[in-house]
Design a protein around this nucleic acid. Structure first.
Lengths: 147, 147
DNA sequence: TGGTTATCGTTGGGGGACCCAATGAAGCCC
DNA sequence: GGGCTTCATTGGGTCCCCCAACGATAACCA
């Protein structure tokens, strides 16, 4: 491939720029890995959230994962169409849908979790386990709005 | 506003996920700040690159900043339209355009650099200067493909 | 020298993530 | 009971990223 000069540039020392680059690479790695199972990042994230947090509404899912309600509709549609989750009206609150993972969903999740972990290992391959933990800790502290 | 539960989720411990969140917040902060000058992130990045690396071709700019040639065309169009850069045919190589920053471009860059720095300060406000340097160092090592 | 290969700017198309506003239905609070 | 809120859904929009192709030009090399 072509040799990229990557001359020093003021821009590339800014956290926001580095975050964008690193996130793009991470997204590429994970998305490519998940594509082997016909899944996308958001689908995997939602499936993982549903598996952990039990049956819950789309709004709750969206809040915990930071996903827009509009996008959530499409994601749950896809997951439901593939039989990975069930969407049943909540008898307690008829506005809500109770989203729950299915047996197929659990099986799929096992594989996508594996793929996601591998992709993240490759993403952080240049780091020691200690450094990886440092990175996670630092990112956690700047990822959220101050509120 | 609604209380976001942010219950523990396996997804949110993954570097790729955290990177996506942090990058989104960084982009929001920087983009909002630059919007005050009518600039977008990519425009500022290109302007900064041109200022540092002197007159150079669009392809070289794209390689150093990781910007797609297609997007570079639009960005340079905008910058040229605003009189911030000049695009002149390179006499040495008539395929290339020599992009160079103008006096107006330098003035604009001074302001946008200030705004970008402030936004990045806010982005990393929760970190000590030491931790900020750590984060930059770690990100630098995972931002680039292995090559 | 002539033919192949590569690069440059440009145009075209497309996808994924993110965000905002509005709607009807349903629950909540007083 | 009336006002406010929440829920799922629909619609519209922006930005960044990637791939493919093209005509023009340059570089390579036998």
């Amino acid at each position: 491939m072509a040799e990229t000069p990557y001359a020093p540039s003021r821009i590339r020392a800014l956290p926001s720029w580095l975050l964008g680059r690193a996130a793009a690479r991470g997204h590429r790695l994970v998305a490519d890995a998940l594509a082997a199972e016909g899944m996308r990042m958001m689908h995997h994230a939602v499936l993982s959230g549903v598996a952990e947090l039990g049956p819950l509404s789309q709004a709750e899912l969206g809040r915990t994962l930071g996903i827009d309600p509009k996008d959530m509709v499409a994601i749950v549609n896809d997951l439901q169409k593939d039989g990975l989750v069930t969407r049943t009206p909540d008898p307690k609150d008829r506005r809500k849908n109770a989203i729950e993972i299915s047996a197929d969903g659990r099986r799929r999740l096992r594989r996508t979790q594996q793929l996601g972990d591998e992709a993240n290992a490759e993403l952080t391959a240049a780091l020691t386990p200690d450094e990886r933990e440092q990175l996670i800790a630092l990112l956690t502290r700047i990822a959220l709005p101050v509120e």
